[in-house]
Each structure stands twice: as C-alpha cells, then as structure tokens.
Amino acid sequence: MEQAASSLPPPARFGATDRKDNWWAAPLTVLIALSAFGVYATFRVVQNAWYAIDDTASAHILSPFYSPLIIWDGMPRWLSPGMLILWAPAGFRLTCYYYRKAYYRAFFLDPPACGVGEPRRNNYLGERGILILQNVHRYFLYLALGFIVILTWDVIKAMMWPDGFGVSVATLILLLNTVFLGLYTFSCHSLRHLVGGRIDCFSCAAMGQARHKAWKGVSKLNSSHMRWAWISLFTVMLADFYVWMVSSGVITDFRFF
C-alpha cells in the first residue's frame, strides 16, 4: 500500500476533477459555435445588404435574418430591417431551456462540466436574481410560432417565379430551414407545458384526450430538442449565407424546374 498525496474533498478550484475524459471538449465546442454564430449574425444584420434575391427573372427569396422585411420611407440608414426582427428569435434561443444549459456551461462555467470544479464565485443565485427573466421564454415562444408562419409563406413565395411555379436550390434551402426551425419550435419545453404538460388529470380535463395526444407529440419532438436546436442554427445561417452569395453575384442560384 502506498499513500498518495491527496485529500478529500478535492480542492474547490476551477477545473479540479478526477475525470479522465476530455470533459472540456463539449463546452469548448459550444463556446466556439455559439460565438461564431453570434459574430456572423451580428455582421449580417449590421451589413444591411444582400438579404434578398429579387431580380426580375427570379422568385422573391428573402434571407430568414430579414424576414419579415420591415422597411419604410425615411428609415434611418443605420437601422437595418434585421435589427427590427432578429431580437425575437434571438430571445427565443437565449431563453431556451437547452441553450441555457449550453451557455451556462460554456460561457459561465457554472459548471463547466459535471463533477468539474467551478471558478470561485460567491452569491450563486441560479435562475433567481436577474435570471428570473428567463421565465419570459413562453412569450418568445408565441413570437417564434408567428415566425414559423412567416417563414412558411417565404418558402411559398420562393416557389412563385415570374413564369410560374419553380424550385431552385434557394427554395430547397429555405424549405429545409423552415422545417428544422419548425421542429425546434414545436419541440419547445414551454410549448410542451402549454399544450398539456400543465394538466395532471387528462381524463378530467376539457378536450383531455386531444391535449394528451398533443402533449405526447410535443414530448416526442422534445426528446431531440438539442438536436433541432443545433441543426436549425446551422440551417438558418446556411439559408442567409446562400442568399447573400446569390444576391451579391458570387454564385448563381440553380433552378431545377
């Protein structure tokens, strides 16, 4: 028997752990991915250009970062239409139960990973204090549901070409984006609560059977909420990037029919 120089509890310092795996990989990946998205989205909104494919030979294709397009005469030049609407989906994601987990770990290191020491800090309040505002998530959900309707209309418009019905790569990307944003929105924890999660006795409740089915459906989607969150984050960026590239003339949108 050999005594090692270690004592209990492990010192409560940042990163202290007995874990042998790469526990830092997940929070680091999240940190990089969310930061990259934040930088890209901010740039595109401030850029205030190349957000629509609007030539006379094409269907009207609008970037999801700028939809719905709000412009009026005399609008200040510094004010981008994207700024007027992007706060809503951004708020939906910022207050999302999944993203909260992701950024509490990656950005606030609270905790950085399970069983890993946190940076020293006093007065931990969790989601009391200022973060009580996270409870506004349900209101951002209501707005996000409206955005799904608007983006669906954008997909329909992207099929209406000057010479009739048509589908291009841009149409498919907008469709893909709307599908994944829909999956992300309809798998929301607050929606799950709203449609039936708040009910204890479905057999006693008005329309209990229907609400139970709705709750089961949202629950099924909800089990992959993290997956939809990431895929939709990627597709919304892809859709905007594609519109940017086509509208700025870097590439040409290929029309299938």
Binding site: K101, Y104, P111, L125, S190, G197
Partner: peptide
Amino acid sequence: FCNITKCCTEVCPESIQITDNAIIPLKE
C-alpha cells in the same frame, strides 16, 4: 436555483429524464 445544466440526468442510473420531465415542468 437549478440552472438546468442536466448533470443530474446524465448520472441517473435509472435513466430518469430528471431535467426535461420533472424539473422543467415544475419550473413552468
């Protein structure tokens, strides 16, 4: 006080979805 970082769910040997099925619904 729970900031839903899901470590409880990760370690549950019975695979109970503690955060998604218990804590978040209670928060709601």
